Simulated scan of single mutants.
Amino acid sequence: MIVIASVLIALVALLHVYFLVLEMFLWDKPIGLKTFRLTQEFATASKTLAANQGLYNGFLAAGLIWGLYLGTAGLAISVFFLLCVIIAGIFGAATVGKKILFVQALPAAIALGFLLAA
């Protein structure tokens, strides 16, 4: 069970690294515009805010990787950062769009479930 939890945590971390790249570097590029359904004008005007958001996603990824690196000693760290991802996903779903619940919160909730069951 711990192996499955670790793989799921790693996938959540990689997902947040992907969010970092999208928001910090590709926000106003074609893939960012398509992913977030933005106009070029809005993307240009909000690029700094998106980069800030991307940085926070990077911190979430770093925390999850840190917890994995510590192994069983990192259980509390993994739980904390998974909860942060879940809360961020719920907030994003409530304020931006329901899709965020499934893209961000659900994978973290599944990983947390496996971690706590291990």
Score class of each variant (00 low, 15 high):
Tyr18Pro: 02
Met24Trp: 12
Pro30Met: 07
Phe19Lys: 02
Leu38Glu: 01
Val79Gly: 11
Phe81Thr: 11
Leu60Asn: 06
Phe91Leu: 14
Thr35Pro: 01
His16Arg: 00
Met24Gln: 13
Leu11Glu: 01
Ile4Thr: 14
Leu112Cys: 08
Leu38Arg: 01
Tyr56Lys: 01
Ala43Trp: 00
Leu112Ser: 05
Lys98Gln: 14
Cys84Ala: 15
Ile100Thr: 09
Ala62Asp: 00
Ala118Ile: 02
Ile4Asn: 08
Lys29Arg: 15
Leu38Asp: 01
Ile65Thr: 12
Lys34Leu: 08
Ile31Lys: 13
Phe102Ser: 12
Ala109Lys: 12
Leu64Trp: 01
Ala43Val: 00
Val79Ser: 10
Leu33Thr: 04
Leu8Gly: 02
Leu112Phe: 08
Phe19Pro: 04
Lys99Gln: 15
Gly32Arg: 03
Pro30Ile: 03
Ala76Val: 14
Leu115Lys: 13
Leu115Pro: 05
Phe59Met: 06
Gln53Tyr: 07
Ala10Ile: 03
Trp27Asn: 07
Glu23Ala: 05
Thr95Cys: 08
Ile31Leu: 13
Ile31Glu: 09
Tyr18Cys: 05
Leu82Glu: 11
Leu106Pro: 06
Ala111Cys: 05
Leu115His: 11
Tyr18Ile: 11
Val21Ala: 13
Ala108Arg: 03
Val85Thr: 13
Ala5Leu: 08
Leu49Asp: 11
Leu26Ala: 08
Phe81Asn: 12
Phe114Lys: 10
Ala62Arg: 00
Ser6Ala: 09
Leu38Ile: 06
Pro30His: 04
Leu8His: 03
Val17Cys: 02
Ile4Glu: 08
Ile90Gln: 14
Lys29Ile: 02
Thr35Phe: 11
Phe25Ser: 06
Ile2Thr: 12
Leu15Gln: 13
Val17Tyr: 00
Thr44Cys: 01
Phe114Trp: 13
Leu26His: 07
Leu82Gln: 11
Gly67Asp: 03
Ala108Asn: 06
Thr35Ile: 06
Thr48Phe: 04
Ala50Asn: 03
Leu101Cys: 04
Leu33Lys: 02
